[in-house]
Amino acid sequence: MSHPSRSLLVAGAWTATVTGILVAVPLLLRDRLPEPLAAHWGPSGRPDRSLPFWASFSLSLAVWALPVAIAVCAHLRWNALRHRAHRRTLGIVLGAGAAFAVGTQAITLAANLDRPGWHEAGPLGWRAFLLVFAAAAAGGALGRAAGGPGPDEPLVREPVVPQAGMRLRPDRRTVWVSSASNGWVTGTGVACLVAAVALAVAGGIVAAGVALVAAGVLAVAGLVVLWVSTAGVRVGDGGLVIAFGPFRRPRRTLPLATLQSARAEERRPSEVGGWGIRGLAGSVTIMIRAGECLVVRDLSGGELAVSVDDAAHGAALLNGLIARRAPVS
């Protein structure tokens, strides 16, 4: 059996098994569950909302349907199982999605089991949620590992003309340093942080726990937004280095030895699905702002693009460095 179809079989069997668990377990336990069930727990750990059995049953299936839909779409649209990077991404989606769906169903059923009514359902604190998220992380890691073995066909892409390489003299060190930033995104991030501080202060004065939680969420959102509001990009003997955020941390390095070619290209957020880090592994765009992007292709055919000013010079230098490396390897 060829490897893509074996992967398909494994993914199909996995989907069927998880769906079977999500359907069979609540049906088997139905006689021991209250009607309606406790379905939501407040910050105190006590149940504060209920759902009828069938609604709860459908909800857990819907939670699982999302990763399955993503995997099916990816398979149909990109024939994703042929490429290791895609298989791994799909493994993470299916593994983490399954662990999350089964985990939330399991803690919900366990809390409701043999209780006379939903008000008497067992408490679920942050530990239970932590457990579910840990299970999802473990599921994702397992899924990634499961996607590893097998052939790695180079991604087939339309041939593009790479930027002509720069001629480099051996006794010179040439580097290219550039960056991209987006004022609107920076402004949004700063606004989130300011709102978070204001909420935290206000929440502290009136002692409202909800305001503090909201402030925390806003602060995290603001930091994430700031982190993709600007990037520094440089090309040198070490390869391509992309440094994220105002503090230029963390950094991602693509060594010269792993790269095949580079080019400059215009890309817009509407084409790649928005701002930030977009796309599946093997075709990723780090979209800071619309316009010039430096696009590099690695040896297995995967592409990484990053918004950056003056991308043509960066691409020309990278191609020059790659050409200089070629006779040695």
């Binding site: 006794d171 010179r172 060190r173 040439t174 580097v175 290219w176 340093v177 550039s178 003056d310 010079h313």
Partner: peptide
């Protein structure tokens, strides 16, 4: 910006 240093300078 492109910068070049001469290693023998």
């Amino acid at each position: 910006m492109l910068l070049t240093l001469d290693l023998n300078d």
